[in-house]
Simulated assay, not measured.
Amino acid sequence: MPVADVRLGTGEHALNVTSIGYGAMSIAGAYGRIAEDAALDLLHHVEERGVNFIDTANIYGDGVSEQVVGTFLRDRRHEFVLATKVGIEKGGGVGQRRARGDAAYIREQVDLSLQRLGTDYVDLYYLHRVDPEVPVEESAGALGELVEAGKVRAIGLSEATGEEIRRAHAEHPVTAVQSEWSIFARDVETYVLPTCAELGIGFVPYSPVGRGLITDHFTPDALGEGDGRHNFPWFQGENLAVNQNLAEQVRAEAAAVGVPAAGLALAWLFAKAAELGAVIAPIPGTRYAQHWDELQAGLGQDGAGVGLPAGTMARLDALAEQVRGERSFSPDWVSGGREGLIPRP
């Protein structure tokens, strides 16, 4: 399973990473429990597949994900490009937390993350959400100060609007923007991706398989008690039945191409990114080694994406308009909502 290298950002703050990274929210129990030894085995599996890019955040499991990643990296820190995030305060769970991006909070939280990760620097430090009460310039400036202090190599933004990206980039060069993007979630194509392409900023899609919906394994019965997906409209009530039917159409297209559905979802991302002139490094997450291999099958023989027939792309492109429900529990929580692309309830 070859993996190509891509370059996120430009100039002195650019980062070379594998074209796919591991999203470590899954090892913090977001979609069900996973023991630490199983999580470490999975990270070793990802390493064996040639991947050197790991993405986590201080909020995942209230630090659990960072701690597990830190344990994994103990003897191999310099072999990996490590990303983590700041900007979501602890609260009562999904939908009950708030964004916080003031400079004092950012300075405080980076040291806590470094301690959990067992390292003295992170390669990429994201503002996890833009704080509506703090100018994004202040947050970007605080992140830039951490670069100057040697605690961070490059900065990023998560779920920022096109305008917010421009404002932050003017304060300090932004290396990567992370937002949800998949066959079913397309709002970033309007403003965010064109802005990244214009400014030379890398794009890191999270949830590229729709939180597991666009895979060969998802069934409604998979949503156990405590599964965070219960909070998202896609997985609620009648929406789920409609979206499950759309996922079945993706599975049929995948079977015709000869790749797993998760692999097809990634191949579609790489093809669409090429159309838009964007450099991407998706960060899917999973708790299972087999599922990781299905994801990586979408990279193809050159490690940069399976080529898809025009007809397949057209049929997949048409599915987003049929998806029932929105991708987030709150429009304000994601870039498309603040850009007027995701309707309010």
Rank of each mutant, 00 (worst) to 15 (best):
V3R: 11
R7C: 06
L8P: 13
T10A: 15
H13K: 10
L15P: 08
N16G: 05
S19W: 01
G23P: 08
I27Y: 05
A28Y: 11
G29H: 02
A30F: 13
G32L: 10
A35W: 02
H44C: 10
H45P: 12
V46S: 14
V46F: 14
E47M: 02
E47Q: 11
G50M: 09
F53Y: 15
I54E: 01
D55R: 08
A57H: 04
A57T: 04
S65W: 11
Q67F: 01
G70Y: 05
F72V: 03
R74G: 00
D75C: 01
R76F: 03
V81W: 13
V86Y: 00
G87D: 07
G87F: 04
I88T: 06
V94W: 09
R98S: 13
G101N: 08
D102M: 05
E108M: 13
Q109L: 11
V110I: 15
V110G: 02
Q115A: 08
R116H: 05
L117D: 06
L117W: 09
D123N: 09
L124E: 11
Y126P: 04
V130A: 13
D131R: 00
P135W: 02
E138Q: 11
A142L: 08
E145D: 15
G150T: 04
I155G: 01
A160G: 08
T161R: 00
I165A: 11
R167K: 02
E171F: 01
E171G: 06
T175D: 07
T175E: 14
E180V: 07
F184Q: 13
R186M: 09
R186L: 07
D187C: 04
V188S: 10
V188L: 07
Y191K: 07
T195H: 13
A197W: 11
E198K: 07
I201M: 06
V204S: 08
S207F: 03
T215L: 12
P220I: 15
A222T: 15
L223H: 12
E225S: 09
H230M: 10
H230R: 15
N231G: 10
N239Q: 05
N239R: 04
A241L: 07
V250R: 06
E253T: 09
E253S: 14
A256E: 15
P260W: 02
A261Y: 01
A262E: 02
G263C: 01
G263F: 03
L264D: 08
A267G: 12
L276N: 03
G277L: 10
I280E: 02
I283W: 08
P284R: 03
R287K: 15
R287I: 14
R287A: 09
A289F: 04
Q290D: 14
W292D: 05
W292P: 07
E294K: 04
Q296M: 07
A297R: 12
G300F: 02
G303F: 03
G303I: 05
G305M: 03
G307V: 05
L308Q: 10
G311Q: 15
A314R: 11
L316W: 08
D317I: 03
D317T: 03
V323H: 02
R324M: 13
R324H: 14
S328P: 07
F329S: 15
P331R: 05
D332R: 07
S335T: 00
G336L: 02
E339Q: 04
E339F: 00
